[in-house]
Design a protein around this nucleic acid. Structure first.
Lengths: 204, 204
DNA sequence: GTCTATAAACGGATAGAC
DNA sequence: GTCTATCCGTTTATAGAC
């Protein structure tokens, strides 16, 4: 017997993940509050009551999607980048991997930035604490560059937020069927962000 | 006699503007769909029915706020920057003026970027067309820098979106009561953005 | 101009059959 | 697991009095 209704935990069935991904797509298009449970149910070929077999509430679904997205961020961006000792290569790894996560099809990652207000305070705090760890990791990478004499004279907090702004804006404008591939765009963004932060700009 | 119910036009009473500003604040905090007309009414000391004397519908209120915000963007950012012939100074004017608009108290400008989905297709197209003019103006400024040999080898479309990402992320993290003043933050952002885009980086 | 009262529709969630 | 049917609170919007 499967164990549904525990979306905050790790081991989830394919069906449950499918619900998260489809729901995230609709939330991304219409917004959390503008999306009805019926429309999500229809997207996964269920009735509204059928959908409630898998989730406890609409807020719980949102929280589950965010936990799922945080896990992907941690696995695909943060953990691999932590392995890199050189701060310059580490920064490049962060930008490239996060950029890929934001431009691939899966929309769960965008829910993480756009729908945080939809969570209950307790759940919101959990997610924000987890995001904070990532923010500090990036800022510490910039501090390491400073210690190395590689950082231009910029405030690392402002610089980190600026970088996040550039990255998190990606899903709002990038189109996979547009003139530039995601890899081309990510390369450009890496060059622009590095040029704004690093010292020897002739290299980039 | 005043002429209410024509929010898309320019001449509006103080009372109407007050409604836009207060409504924008609540939309900014809770999101458009999560905000009820009653709570807006309460914020401007009216009943819900009283509020409907000033606006035609919730969507119409959103559209009016966006038109009001676009007017401010055009008056306070675009028009003064267009007067500047030198592309480098013009870019700096755009970043500084847009940064100020985003960090001052008035939240209407943030509604413009976050709640576009709340508009009916016809109104949405109107606002997007007007935003497009601004986007093209910024990109053309970068192209002028390129013609001058001052731009690093970057795609101007990606560069413009990157700059907007950094700027439009500001209202999500900047706190007027935080450790840095808005002018300090804007100066940092100008330095970071310029460094990422311009050639002679030793100067910045 | 602003109010009270209410219409009309929608949305989240559940009961209980199969 | 999935459905039909339904409950009930909330929301946008309006009618009509003052």
């Amino acid at each position: 017997m499967k164990t549904p209704k525990k979306p905050a935990l790790a081991a989830e069935s394919d069906r449950t993940i499918d619900i998260y991904v489809k729901a995230a797509e609709i939330f991304h298009e219409q917004g959390f509050d503008a999306t009805s449970m019926s429309s999500i149910a229809a997207a996964v070929d269920l009735t509204k009551a059928g959908l409630y077999y898998y989730i406890e509430s609409k807020e719980d679904l949102l929280f589950a999607i965010m936990n799922y997205a945080m896990e992907r961020l941690e696995t695909m961006v943060i953990e691999p980048s932590r392995q890199i000792a050189d701060p310059r290569q580490r920064l490049e790894s962060i930008i490239t991997r996060h950029g890929r996560l934001l431009t691939e099809g899966n929309k769960a990652i965008t829910i993480l930035t756009d729908e945080i207000e939809g969570l209950k305070p307790k759940h919101r705090k959990e997610i924000l604490d987890r995001k904070r760890v990532y923010f500090d990791f990036v800022r510490e990478t910039l501090e390491a560059l400073r210690a190395d004499g590689q950082l231009r004279p910029v405030n690392t907090t402002v610089a980190t937020f600026s970088l996040f702004g550039t990255l998190l804006w990606l899903p709002r404008w990038f189109r996979p069927d547009g003139p530039l591939s995601s890899e081309q765009v990510i390369e450009e963004i890496t060059r622009i962000a590095s040029g704004g932060l690093l010292n020897n700009c002739a290299k980039n």
